[in-house]
Design a protein around this nucleic acid. Structure first.
Length: 647
RNA sequence: GCCCACGUAGCUCAGUGGUAGAGCACGUCCUUGGUAAGGACGGGGUCACCAGUUCAAGUCUGGUCGUGGGCUCCA
């Protein structure tokens, strides 16, 4: 071990410190103000406790209360403060453990004789604020197993003793302490409780110990915390905004789709909703012509043998629907397709192929059914019936690189149309229940990694063991207008399926070869994309997607005839337009047009009828004034045909 | 699938054991108006479903289904 180590900071500067210095020591060496605000460190890209001792050269970023990453540390510490508050209010309450979820909330489980009630929340919050005001330092101690046992036994924390047994031998065990409160915890934690700026309890629920119903029921408290009151308020505003944009709410309000218990987790797209769905399909079909794809239509119901052959039956039969006639129910011999790949293998294998015709890009919008577990379905983002913009590319090994290259172009072109500019890329490798030779897997992973390395504009993260059972994949996570990440596109390399379906092609030398199969989708599930897109646009769909592009609002019934003429002309130009024929005041009709998020409202009164003009009003904007109908049509047709995001 | 909560009119919701309510939406009529809600009247509910407790259940209990939040999962 070196006596001094070199710590490189984000600005490129370096500092030499004694080996064994902590993150906090580094901060202190830079300045006292920084040290005061330090909540954690990021060592070589990994978030660590500020008490972590550095023993090797490393790059370090000091995380302060002002950084967004500080939130997790603040909430983790608030979790301990909440547990402390409960123990102070109800001494002797045994604690289980806390955890963070993925939405800026933390939770902690207790053995408590009854559910926590709203009145309890206030008392607990007040107590938490007292503990924060005490500004107690968090102390981290690395301890031996026996020591933990003594401490927790002494404190009557018998649940903790069970948790202790679950920690694998050889793993470092740490205790975090503030005031009288002690928890078995990995960290990281703040310096002092006073660094927690604002806390709020959110809800409570029962929860079985370790999530197993055979175990005892504990009581769980949920809360959130931030560095400041301002950030806490921003959190609640964000929650409100999420509710406002919720695609389930928008789908109902805009009359796009509904759900019915007769077909749980299966969307019914209404006329307006179907227009949007079909506009997405039209987009993909147009691009398919450009990128050389061939669309096919395949069956819904298949002999189960097909899935045994493809490997899906072994891996996923619990998630499949079966479709047997009543007298065959015992056999479960027919199944509804959960995916398209085997169909495409059958089509490819229906005749001999020459290397000259590869790659073949087979596309399919076929309806898929997957028996998603009841607890996992949500709105359009996780459904039991959906279609994908699915395609399988059959190509030679040499063509993998160029094909993936082209896919990157395709994917970014599509995302650009929607304004999805923040895209994160992941490489997922061999999972546990993989089929096929590990050597082939290694090769496939290497091929994908090379494609990723070759692109200057893409950085990626490896997800170990997250690949499909037949091959590794590249996934694309897209951030929507609120910065939430959604997995949409996927590119999956598959050497197994061509083998299982005996697919082949004749190469230039006249000998038989096996093609490689690339599974890919860009929007992913149309349904999920639909939901994500609705929330991304907050329901304000761009003109090319809007179910009703133009609405004509006659001011009085006297100009109804002119209004009908205008709509007729708009429709002749291929636009989706209608007249608001109700005998309501203009203000009412405008309000309704705005509420239904129609991009263009055309107000027509006697003046317009006399001059053959229209008064244009854009969604969420002021009156744009009077224009000739031709000028407005040109403007709308242009926005639609270019798929502009602006009206 | 597991945990918790919820399910009353098309929507948002009120109604804690004693004859089902409001606003919006919808219909009819009056009003014919110039850039975000004109007025009057009216129709509409097996209170998710099935059992149970009770003289009496939207209300209490159990079960089923569905939905929401979270967990696990997502070929």
């Amino acid at each position: 071990m070196a006596e001094t180590i070199r710590i490189t900071l984000p600005d490129g500067s370096a500092r030499d410190l004694p080996s064994g210095s902590t993150v906090l020591d580094v901060a202190a060496a830079i300045g006292p103000r920084l040290a005061k605000d330090t909540v954690a460190g990021e060592v070589d890209g990994e978030l660590v406790d500020l008490r972590t001792r550095l023993t090797e050269d490393a790059t370090l970023r000091i995380v302060t209360v002002k950084d967004t990453e500080a939130g997790d540390v603040i909430r983790h510490s608030a979790e301990h403060v909440m547990a402390d508050a409960v123990k102070r209010l109800w001494p002797g309450t045994p604690i289980d453990a806390g955890r963070q979820d993925h939405s800026e909330k933390y939770q902690y489980d207790f053995r408590f004789p009854r559910p926590f009630k709203p009145e309890d929340f206030e008392r607990i919050e007040t107590k938490m604020r007292e503990i924060i005001a005490e500004d107690l330092p968090f102390e981290r101690t690395e301890v031996g197993r026996d020591e933990v046992r003594v401490v927790m036994t002494g404190r009557g924390e018998d649940i903790k003793l069970i948790r202790l047994e679950d920690i694998p031998e050889g793993e470092a065990i740490t205790l975090y302490r503030h005031g009288d409160f002690v928890d078995l915890c990995r960290g990281p934690h703040l310096q002092r409780t006073g660094q927690i700026g604002a806390v709020r309890l959110l809800e409570s629920s029962g929860a079985y110990f370790k999530g197993d119903e055979r175990n005892e029921m504990l009581q769980r408290l949920y809360g959130t915390a931030f560095g400041s009151k301002k950030e806490l308020n921003a959190y609640f505003e964000r929650i409100e905004e999420l509710k406002r944009r919720d695609h389930r709410k928008l789908g109902r309000e805009l009359d796009l789709f509904s759900f019915h218990s007769e077909a749980p987790a299966s969307p019914f797209f209404h006329p307006r909703g179907a227009i949007v769905y079909n506009a997405l399909l039209e987009l993909m079909r147009e691009k398919y012509r450009q990128y050389g794809y061939e669309e096919v239509i395949t069956p819904q119901i298949f002999d189960v043998e097909l899935w045994k052959r493809s490997g899906h039956y072994d891996n996923y039969r619990d998630d499949m629907f079966f479709a047997d006639a009543f007298d065959e129910v015992e056999d479960r011999s027919s199944s509804v397709k959960p995916m398209n790949c085997p169909s495409h293998c059958l089509i490819y294998g229906s005749r001999a192929h020459s290397y000259r015709e590869l790659p073949r890009r087979i596309a399919d919008f076929g309806r898929l059914h997957r028996y998603e577990r009841s607890g996992v379905v949500t709105g359009l983002t996780r459904v039991r019936t959906f279609s994908q913009d699915d395609a399988h590319i059959f190509c030679t090994p040499e063509q993998i690189g160029p094909e993936i290259e082209a896919l990157f172009e395709f994917i970014f072109e599509i995302y650009d149309i929607f304004g999805f500019s923040d895209v994160r890329v992941f490489l997922s490798t061999r999972p546990e229940k993989a089929i096929g030779d590990p050597k082939v897997w290694e090769h496939a992973e290497a091929v994908l990694a090379r494609c990723l390395e070759d692109r200057d504009d893409v950085t990626y993260t490896v997800k170990e063991g997250e690949g499909a059972f037949y091959g590794p994949k590249i996934d694309f996570d897209v951030a929507d207008a609120l910065g939430r990440a959604w997995q949409l596109a996927t590119i999956q390399l598959d050497f197994q399926m061509p083998d299982r379906f005996d697919l082949g092609y004749i190469d230039a030398e006249g000998s038989a070869n096996q093609p490689v199969m690339i599974h890919r989708a860009i929007l992913g599930s149309l349904e999920r994309f639909y939901g994500v897109m609705l929330e991304h646009f907050a329901g304000d769909l761009p003109p090319w997607l809007a179910p009703e592009q133009v609405r004509v609002l006659p001011i009085t019934d006297a100009v109804m005839e002119y209004a009908e003429q205008v709509v007729g002309t708009l429709r002749e130009h291929g636009l989706r337009a209608d007249v608001d024929r109700r005998s309501e005041k203009l203000g009412y009709k405008i309000r309704d047009g705005e509420t239904m998020k129609v991009p263009y409202l055309l107000v027509v009164g006697q003046r317009e009828a006399d001059e053959k003009t229209v008064s244009l009003r854009l969604r969420h904007r002021r009156d744009e004034g009077v224009h000739s109908l031709d000028a407005v049509i040109e403007r709308v047709v242009d926005a639609v045909s270019t798929r502009s995001r602006e009206a």
